[in-house]
Computed example of a mutant assay.
Amino acid sequence: MNLVRSAYYAWLKTRPATEERQRSEDELAEEIREIHSTSRGAYGVPRVPAALGRTGKRISRKRAERIMRERDIRGITRRRRHRLTKSDTEAAPSPELVGRDFIVARPGVKLVSDITYLPALADWWCRATVIDLAAREVIGYAIADHHRAELVGDVMKMGAGRGALKPECSAHSDRASEYTSRE
């Protein structure tokens, strides 16, 4: 019984410090809200501690994250998102010839292909590649400022132009519109 009573009084002694910490956190939250609204909602967890540091208040990133999360303050992203794959919903799906078996003994039998977006100074560039699974090497590639079907066609022609493809060769790719086009 004495142990319970002493724990209660120990807890009671911490109340003023807890209330003081809560008050200082509420003031900090108001400063964070002000910084957040000044940035038109753009500043999130990485920038808020830096902005507070410029005013002379040092705060850790994790503390800022906790305070912002508890008070539902979120930064927004104004970046333009690029969808990497735009499926052609009207195209008939081609059969899965590779069957997710990416191990091959002979070169020129199974190929995989994909398009990657590369950030440039002003815009994005598209790089298409075709890889021979047996040799694990790129046999065709092309870079362009568009991702139309001609890009994929050029890559496939380059891969076939090397002359190492077998008559039973099959190619695997995602079902993006470039790969399902007539070309």
Results as ranks from 00 to 15, higher is better:
residue 152 V to T: 13
residue 146 H to I: 00
residue 55 T to I: 12
residue 88 D to M: 02
residue 58 R to P: 00
residue 34 E to Y: 07
residue 101 D to C: 05
residue 168 E to D: 15
residue 86 K to E: 09
residue 118 L to W: 06
residue 151 L to H: 02
residue 6 S to W: 06
residue 41 G to Y: 01
residue 171 A to C: 11
residue 163 G to M: 08
residue 44 G to H: 02
residue 80 R to Y: 11
residue 136 R to S: 14
residue 151 L to M: 05
residue 79 R to G: 10
residue 171 A to L: 15
residue 108 G to A: 09
residue 168 E to P: 05
residue 57 K to N: 02
residue 3 L to S: 08
residue 131 I to G: 02
residue 97 L to A: 08
residue 71 R to D: 09
residue 183 E to K: 09
residue 78 R to E: 11
residue 104 V to E: 09
residue 92 A to N: 12
residue 58 R to G: 01
residue 40 R to N: 13
residue 106 R to W: 04
residue 123 D to P: 00
residue 14 T to C: 08
residue 128 A to L: 02
residue 83 R to E: 06
residue 124 W to L: 09
residue 93 P to G: 09
residue 46 P to N: 11
residue 52 L to I: 06
residue 80 R to V: 10
residue 130 V to R: 01
residue 126 C to A: 15
residue 3 L to C: 04
residue 95 P to D: 10
residue 170 S to P: 00
residue 10 A to N: 14
residue 57 K to F: 01
residue 132 D to Y: 02
residue 83 R to P: 00
residue 97 L to E: 09
residue 43 Y to R: 08
residue 155 V to A: 02
residue 60 S to P: 06
residue 4 V to C: 03
residue 14 T to R: 13
residue 98 V to R: 05
residue 44 G to N: 01
residue 5 R to E: 09
residue 98 V to K: 02
residue 74 R to W: 08
residue 112 V to L: 11
residue 133 L to Q: 09
residue 168 E to L: 04
residue 103 I to V: 15
residue 122 A to H: 13
residue 118 L to A: 08
residue 90 E to G: 09
residue 124 W to Q: 07
residue 15 R to Y: 03
residue 173 S to E: 05
residue 148 R to E: 07
residue 183 E to I: 10
residue 117 Y to T: 08
residue 61 R to W: 05
residue 98 V to M: 03
residue 24 S to Y: 07
residue 125 W to R: 05
residue 1 M to R: 12
residue 116 T to F: 03
residue 142 A to V: 03
residue 16 P to I: 05
residue 15 R to H: 08
residue 16 P to Q: 11
residue 142 A to N: 10
residue 179 Y to P: 08
residue 121 L to G: 15
residue 114 D to W: 05
residue 137 E to H: 07
residue 121 L to N: 12
residue 5 R to V: 14
residue 80 R to A: 11
residue 133 L to G: 04
residue 99 G to H: 04
residue 87 S to P: 09
residue 64 A to W: 00
residue 103 I to T: 15
residue 86 K to A: 06
residue 88 D to I: 01
residue 114 D to I: 01
residue 27 E to L: 14
residue 17 A to M: 08
residue 34 E to T: 15
residue 131 I to Y: 00
residue 48 V to W: 01
